[in-house]
């Protein structure tokens, strides 16, 4: 059969979300950020809340998230997205507010902000990208860097006695009364992408129902700073990150 018989508007089954802009993402080839951005766009479009959604971008690779989703955006100082989100949601209780943060931003410099926003049960969505490294600044150790993992500031591998232990902040926020939904997902294969999308949708719905803070960790690959090709990085993530950061819901109420 001629391909042109198939490629017709009426046969389109997977179009690009209208919430995504046409700007080419600055992320490296194979970066997980792009998939998560796409899922956010799809959920916002499917829930028809583009006119009521306010995103907060972090400092780190995702600082430019505001170029890729056509919604209103605030660009926060390093680690402070939950503070901006708190005020925004309290001042506009009927809007959807999400903070998008990386591991250095959320689990290192912004530890106080995320713990207290979650503890207050702010009705926000937190998207936490954990790739165990500082991407934007060139591959330094993150709070979530695995023991033994080489980074530019742990060139011989992370050692617990020198650098402390990788921080499971997701398990930590799950302990807090204010969180209603805490889950850990990934986006390296179609099944996981679908699960992550369901989680994001659920988080936004929780926000509308004012159930408290929804926190979604996405275990991600940073192939450039891990110094691997994209496909190999995803495999390394499955073999090394998933055992320490197991996927699945930690809390759902």
């Amino acid at each position: 059969m001629d391909i042109n018989e198939i490629i017709k508007p009426e046969n389109l089954v997977y179009p690009k979300s209208k919430v995504l802009t046409d700007t080419v993402m600055h992320y490296c080839p194979g970066c997980s950020h792009g998939v998560v951005h796409k899922l956010l766009a799809e959920v916002i479009e499917e829930m028809d809340i583009q006119d009521r959604t306010i995103g907060i971008s972090p400092v780190g690779c995702a600082v430019f998230a505001y170029n890729y989703l056509d919604i209103d955006w605030q660009q926060a100082a390093h680690g402070r997205a939950p503070a901006l989100a708190t005020a925004t949601k309290r001042l506009y209780p009927d809007k959807y507010v999400f903070a998008y943060q990386g591991d250095g931003d959320l689990a290192s410099i912004g530890t106080a902000e995320i713990i207290h926003a979650c503890n207050r049960g702010e009705n926000i969505v937190v998207i936490f990208i954990n790739n165990a490294i500082y991407g934007m600044t060139g591959g330094q150790m993150a709070p979530t860097t695995l023991i033994g993992m080489k980074t530019s500031t742990t060139p011989y591998g992370r050692k617990a006695e020198l650098n402390g232990y990788p921080l499971k902040i997701t398990e930590l926020v799950a302990q807090l009364e204010g969180t209603c939904y805490v889950t850990r997902q990934a986006v390296e294969n179609p099944a996981n992408v679908r699960k992550t999308k369901k989680a994001i949708r659920k988080a936004f719905e929780n926000s509308a129902q004012k159930k408290g803070t929804s926190f979604i960790e996405i275990v991600a690959a940073c192939n450039s700073n891990w110094k691997m090709p994209p496909v190999e990085a995803n495999k390394w993530m499955e073999d090394n990150m998933f055992p320490f950061y197991p996927l699945g819901d930690i809390k759902d109420r």
């Binding site: 306010i54 907060i56 605030q74 926060a76 100082a77 402070r80 503070a83 901006l84 989100a85 708190t86 005020a87 925004t88 001042l91 506009y92 106080a112 902000e113 713990i115 207290h116």
Partner: peptide
Amino acid sequence: QAESETSSINMLYGGACC
């Protein structure tokens, strides 16, 4: 009541954005 002055000012940042 915020958890710190750092958080207070960034709550202002978010609120002022609005």
